[in-house]
Write a protein that binds this DNA or RNA. Sequence first.
DNA 1: TTGTGATCATCT
DNA 2: AGATGATCACAA
Length: 227
Amino acid sequence: MAAAAPRPRTEEELLGRARALAGARLGEVAASLRRPVPSDLRRAKGWVGELVELALGASAGSRPEPDFPELGIEVKTLPVDAQGAPKESTHVCAISMREAAGAHWETSVARAKLARVLWVPVEAAAAIALPMRHIGQAILWSPDTREEALLRRDWEEHMELIALGRSDQIRGEMGAVLQVRPKAASGGSRTPVSDGDGVRAAALPLGFYLRPRFTAAILGRVYAPLR
DNA sequence: TTGTGATCATCT
DNA sequence: AGATGATCACAA
């Protein structure tokens, strides 16, 4: 590939691209796409994710919908340590706090994105230089009944608090698998919210994140049948 | 400003 | 060590 990959038209095409990417190093992928490799990720936090999306043929857009809308598939890179365990939580989506009151899990952005996810593990141990880090074998995942129930419960509990205008009472400790944390440019960021009585107010923008334990369980499925 | 891609930095 | 709260870059 000399430029960005063509947009895959089928799930098989996308999976084929993901398979071709497995085992590659970030440096060589970047070179083939003619993209510079940053010296570190401190000022390029989304670089790995953007590189993988480009290689898979995703569009660069930033709309609140899955990366491949026609396939209903969201792509997420997963930074893993030397043991193959996720090092970080996974950002799911921003929360539209003004519309929390009338929101439903079934039609939520969070559910749409988590309905079908192509997880792409990427080495992230600090000891490995960025260009040398390997991309792992991707996993196409959908939540099973139990997982969806857990996600839904956490989502509904958080959204109820937000709808009541109590988003400032939300803590990262809440939520078994899906937590809510700030998602902003800085701690001074504010977004419109409605308080309990529909009065205009402003609060820190929040986003949904999957806990590392949850994504670790997803990666574990690959090895579980072998044990 | 909001949403995308996330990791950083600090505290327990 | 693990997790929470804070933060960085870019597009529309």
